[in-house]
Amino acid sequence: MMLQKLEQLKALFAQMERALIAYSGGVDSTLVAKIATDVLGDRAIAVTAVSPSLLPEELEDAQVQAAQIGIVHKIIQTHEMDNPNYTSNPVNRCYFCKSELHDTLKPLAKEWGYPYIVDGVNADDLRDYRPGIQAAKERGVRSPLAEMGVTKAEVRQLSQQLGLSWWDKPAQPCLSSRFPYGEEITVSKLQRVGRAEIYLRKLGWQNLRVRSEGDTARIELMPDLIKDFVAQTDLVALTAAFQSYGFVYVTLDLEGYRSGKLNQVLSAPMASR
């Protein structure tokens, strides 16, 4: 099954002849970039959009991974923070983010001679509430993984089979996803969340989120690690660090980390869209 899907993905890129990959450095878009490069060689290009909602660590990872894959990698700036429809943080915030991304990429692709723009959306993403997918579709973006029915688990399997050392890299959505819908997003808020997550990763904790609500930071870790975290971490030093970043209160979510947790406040029909 995996071999068949890999061959289908290769055939899809062979038909494209030239492709621009909207490349975040996450495991999904990196797999797409790898397969595109294997098929198209220098007729594939990866483009990463940089804005305050992207962790500097993620940009560094994207650059390292692109170099290992051997794909041409360009960096552009996007300006979703200039759009009040984005910064007001409505439930469809991601729609405005992806609109900005692809409205920036589309003219560049045309100028550079790439008839196709592709992203890393996978089959599982279609079952979640992802308003950004609609924005990409409206602009003619292709999603090879979703088109071939490749799930997140299969993305990791394929990445491992292709020898990509980051096949088990944790998901890392943009920093704006750390805020409850309706709370205004600012550059300073994004920066303090980013610094807080970097602090925790430097302590050795990887698959995590720091959710921000008002003056409160809520740390989410994998449930089976919560006891170890409390026992092993200097909580006084951690609190002082977070307060130096601008938080007033620091809490630990006892339920633990769960992807898409902020979407649980949405109505059932909307969350299933």
Results as ranks from 00 to 15, higher is better:
residue 2 M to G: 14
residue 11 A to C: 09
residue 14 A to C: 14
residue 18 R to Q: 12
residue 25 G to R: 02
residue 27 V to C: 05
residue 30 T to I: 03
residue 30 T to V: 05
residue 31 L to Y: 04
residue 39 V to I: 02
residue 43 R to Y: 01
residue 51 S to P: 11
residue 52 P to S: 14
residue 62 A to N: 03
residue 62 A to K: 02
residue 73 H to S: 01
residue 74 K to C: 09
residue 78 T to I: 11
residue 83 N to D: 14
residue 89 N to K: 12
residue 90 P to M: 07
residue 100 E to M: 15
residue 102 H to T: 11
residue 104 T to C: 11
residue 105 L to Y: 02
residue 105 L to P: 02
residue 113 G to M: 14
residue 115 P to G: 13
residue 115 P to F: 15
residue 124 D to Q: 00
residue 132 G to L: 08
residue 138 E to A: 01
residue 138 E to K: 03
residue 139 R to E: 02
residue 150 V to H: 00
residue 154 E to W: 15
residue 161 Q to F: 14
residue 162 L to N: 02
residue 166 W to G: 00
residue 169 K to C: 12
residue 170 P to M: 11
residue 175 L to Y: 07
residue 177 S to F: 15
residue 178 R to P: 03
residue 182 G to C: 04
residue 183 E to N: 02
residue 191 Q to C: 10
residue 193 V to E: 08
residue 195 R to F: 01
residue 197 E to L: 08
residue 202 K to I: 08
residue 208 L to V: 02
residue 209 R to M: 06
residue 218 R to D: 08
residue 219 I to M: 10
residue 219 I to Q: 08
residue 222 M to P: 09
residue 225 L to F: 11
residue 226 I to E: 01
residue 239 T to V: 13
residue 239 T to C: 12
residue 246 G to P: 00
residue 258 R to A: 06
residue 260 G to T: 05
residue 269 P to E: 15
